[in-house]
Amino acid sequence: MNARIKYSVLLIGVGIILAFLPFNASLSFRLKPSELLAKLVADESYFSVDQVARFLNNEDSTGQLIDVRSTGQFKECNIPGSINIPFSDFTNPLWEGYLNQKEMKNIYYGNDGQTASYAWAIATGLGYGNNFVMKGGLNEWFKTVMLSQFSGEKITPLENARFENRLNARKVFTQVNSLPDSLKTKYFNAKRLIESKLDGGCE
């Protein structure tokens, strides 16, 4: 029989199967449930607010803070150096360059721990590496970094270092967030370098 007819039948058959698949171009998890659960149980995916404060003070570029709150909340105040990826917009392909990369640790935070944990689970489930959550979110940040005071008689060197770290982070946080809105926007835009990814080609 004519080879053309064979190929045509084969292709149309495959097409019919594809047409019935629940396949879609949108995102679903790539990890197996057991793999994701193993990462969840491993409990290695947290940074404390003190560690984040140290990142901030050292201008450490190995970590990227990602604020998953809404844009309005982000504008009100955020940890300097963080980028805003609202959780409701998390699957927007625009963010994929930030989320799916191997160079930096992505540290998610929200007002508390919940939304950041959703973001962690989704990013990890999608197979992205290097996902962390800032434990306790901004509530913990305010409680520990912004408002904690040393009380006691004698300060140990270790505690002294910790409080100095908090104090410095507090200063940067207050300074940057007190900027007028126009300057703030400028500051954020300067941070926002969109790396162009792969380039298309032709035959």
């Binding site: 045509s8 292709l11 149309i12 495959v14 097409g15 019919i16 594809l18 047409a19 019935f20 698949l21 396949f23 879609n24 171009a25």
Partner: peptide, 15 residues
Amino acid sequence: VSAGVFTFLLIVAAV
């Protein structure tokens, strides 16, 4: 339409 349906339509169009 879903990507699969589109593929099917395209195959039919191609043939």
